[in-house]
């Protein structure tokens, strides 16, 4: 068999290797994470029961990203033992105006009054909502430094320098059991990581994906928290 010495093929192979290296490198920045949960009541979920994931009101200063809520919902619903998650906009619309940022109950003390309002208990029962999960927190850039300059001209372009930044993702999920109208507990995730961007002609990003790590960790922990019928 004659070896393929086509220079185009060789170039393609090199390009693939560089892309694979970049993709691998971009996943390789380190993150440290801490997951905790505090259980205040027995949990468990029956077939046909569902959960809703909501962001705490921005009237209370919360800035949880829509993408994060979506990510947690998708991760909880996915995979083995995935739970039934009702899209939060569908839930909020069905119960309008009682879960708007201004009117949503701030704690479980407000639940009995809310459930006594016309139609509220019926809608919640019809949708099979057992747990309401309130997310609080966000991802912030806590530090950063370095410098990089890029230039482009008729002969090509490139970057030179080194930049780094540190992100911290801190989220807390408060679980309300709508069956007992009580607080079932909280699950929290704190993830921090430093991203690096060295560049010698081509920038090579080494990204610390703190938010996606926090999403995955929090969602898996929430799944266990709700399903596991452990002693308090």
């Amino acid at each position: 068999m004659v070896p393929d010495n086509n220079p185009k093929q060789g170039y393609k192979m090199q390009l693939r290797a560089v892309v694979a290296l970049l993709a691998g490198a971009s996943l390789s920045a380190c993150v440290t994470s801490r997951l905790e949960h505090i259980k205040e009541a027995k949990t468990g979920i029956l077939e046909g029961e569902s959960i809703v994931i909501m962001a705490k009101s921005y009237h209370l200063g919360n800035e949880t990203e829509e993408k994060f809520i979506e990510c947690v919902g998708n991760t909880i619903a996915r995979g083995r033992g995935g739970l039934r998650v009702i899209p939060n906009q569908e839930f909020v619309d069905a119960l309008f105006p009682w879960f708007e940022p201004r009117t949503a109950p701030a704690d479980t003390k407000g639940l009995p009054a809310l459930m006594s309002r016309p139609g509220v208990a019926e809608v919640i029962k019809e949708k099979g909502v057992r747990y309401l999960i309130w997310l609080d927190g966000d991802t912030d850039k806590t530090a950063g430094g370095g410098s990089m300059s890029c230039a482009i001209g008729p002969g090509g372009g490139g970057c030179f320098g080194f930049a780094w930044w540190q992100n911290e993702s801190a989220y807390e999920a408060t679980v309300w059991d709508l069956d007992g109208l009580a607080d079932a507990g909280t699950v929290s995730a704190e993830v921090s990581g430093t991203s690096f961007l060295p560049a010698i002609i081509i920038p090579v990003p080494l990204i610390a994906r703190t938010r996606s790590k926090a999403c995955k960790g929090l969602a898996e922990q929430l799944k266990l928290f709700i399903v596991a019928d452990e002693e308090i």
Binding site: Y58, E65, E66, K67, F96, P97, E100, P101, R102
Partner: peptide, 30 residues
């Protein structure tokens, strides 16, 4: 209010306006 990273600039402003109108409706009902 609405985050631009999720919906893009125009869509985010549109969503913020709709949320403000829903907020007014909630306030009037309450």
């Amino acid at each position: 209010k609405s985050q631009s990273s999720t919906f893009g600039g125009d869509a985010a402003l549109r969503k913020a306006a709709i949320l403000a109108m829903r907020d007014a409706a909630a306030l009037i009902i309450m």
